[in-house]
C-alpha cells in the first residue's frame, strides 16, 4: 500500500503568542515551532498500517517556516521511507485554500492509496486541509479516526464521537483519513538516529506554484478578554496546597 502523510509545524502553544503590530496576525518571528501533535499520531498510524500491509510511507509538508527538515528527518527515523517538502516564497498566513492546493499538487503524482492527515492543526482555520485535499483529489474523507485497519482495496476505520462512542466505516481506496489518535501511542525515535538520518537523508523538494487568495480575511486578532478571571494564589507549593485544602474543607470534600 502506498501511504502518504501530510505534516505541519505549528507554533508551540506554551510560548507567549504575541499579536503582530497591525493586529491581524501573530508576531511570527517570536514563535518556536513544533510538529502538530495529531500529525505525529497520523504518522504512527501510517507506519503501523505499513507494518501490517507492506508498502511505503511518504511524508510531505509545505515548508512555510524554513525549518521543516527537522520534522521530516524525525519522521524518517520513525519509519517513513520518503520525505518531500513543498518550497516557495510563501506567506506564513497562507490560507487553507492555498495550502490544500499546494499539497494536492505535490501528492497527486505519488499515486497514493491512502493519505493520512492530522484531524486538525492547532493553529489557524482548524481542520480544513484533510477534507479539502479529499475534495480536490476526488477521494472520500473520514476524520476523527483512531484506528485504521488495511484490507484489500479498502480500509476499516474507527471514528470517534463524544463520550467514547465509536462508529466503524469501511472506506474504498484511494481515500483521505483524518487521524485523531494512532491505535498505539507514537513510537519514540532516538536523537542519535535522527542525527544519523539528517546526515544522509535526501529530502525531495517540489516547487510550489501560485496559490489562490484566502477567501476570508482576519480583520482583528486579540486575546480573550476573560483572561485572568481566576483569582490567582501566589506562593510556594506548600502554601498553595494549604489554600486548596482549605477550599476542599469548605466544600465539605475534606473531612478534618
Amino acid at each position: 500500500m502506498i501511504l502518504a502523510v501530510a505534516i505541519k509545524q505549528v507554533p508551540n502553544l506554551t510560548d507567549d503568542l504575541e499579536i503582530s503590530a497591525d493586529g491581524t496576525g501573530l508576531d511570527y518571528d517570536a514563535l518556536t515551532y513544533v510538529l502538530n501533535e495529531f500529525d505525529e499520531q497520523a504518522l504512527e498510524e501510517a507506519v503501523l498500517v505499513k507494518e501490517a500491509a507492506g508498502g511505503s510511507v511518504t511524508v510531505v509538508g509545505i515548508d512555510t517556516t524554513g525549518e521543516l527538515d527537522g520534522a521530516l528527518h524525525t519522521a524518517l527515523a520513525k519509519g517513513a521511507d520518503r520525505a518531500m517538502k513543498v518550497t516557495g516564497d510563501f506567506d506564513r498566513d497562507l490560507g487553507s485554500e492555498g495550502q490544500a492546493q499546494l499539497l494536492a499538487e505535490a501528492i497527486r503524482p505519488l499515486a497514493a492509496d491512502l493519505l493520512l492527515t492530522g484531524v486538525q492543526a492547532a493553529d489557524d482555520r482548524d481542520g480544513q486541509i484533510g477534507p479539502r485535499l479529499a475534495a480536490l483529489l476526488g477521494w472520500p474523507y473520514v476524520g476523527v479516526v483512531t484506528h485504521v485497519t488495511p484490507e484489500p482495496g479498502c480500509v476499516r476505520v474507527h471514528k470517534e464521537y463524544a463520550g467514547g462512542l465509536l462508529a466503524e466505516f469501511v472506506v474504498t481506496l484511494p481515500a483521505v483519513i483524518g487521524v485523531q489518535a494512532s491505535h498505539q501511542p507514537p513510537r519514540y525515535a532516538p536523537v542519535s538516529k535522527i542525527r544519523q538520518i539528517a546526515k544522509t537523508a535526501q529530502i525531495e523538494s517540489v516547487a510550489g506554484q501560485g496559490t489562490p487568495a484566502s477567501s476570508s480575511s482576519v480583520r482583528r486578532m486579540f486575546k480573550p478578554e476573560a483572561a485572568g478571571q481566576a483569582e490567582m494564589w501566589a506562593g510556594e507549593p506548600e502554601e498553595v496546597a494549604g489554600k486548596i485544602a482549605t477550599l476542599l474543607t469548605a466544600k465539605g470534600l475534606l473531612k478534618l
Binding site: 476570508s216 480575511s217 482576519v218
Partner: peptide, 11 residues
C-alpha cells in the same frame, strides 16, 4: 484559535 489562546475576527 491556537488552542483557545487567541481570538480571530474574520469576514
Amino acid at each position: 484559535i491556537y488552542g483557545g489562546k487567541i481570538l480571530a475576527e474574520a469576514v
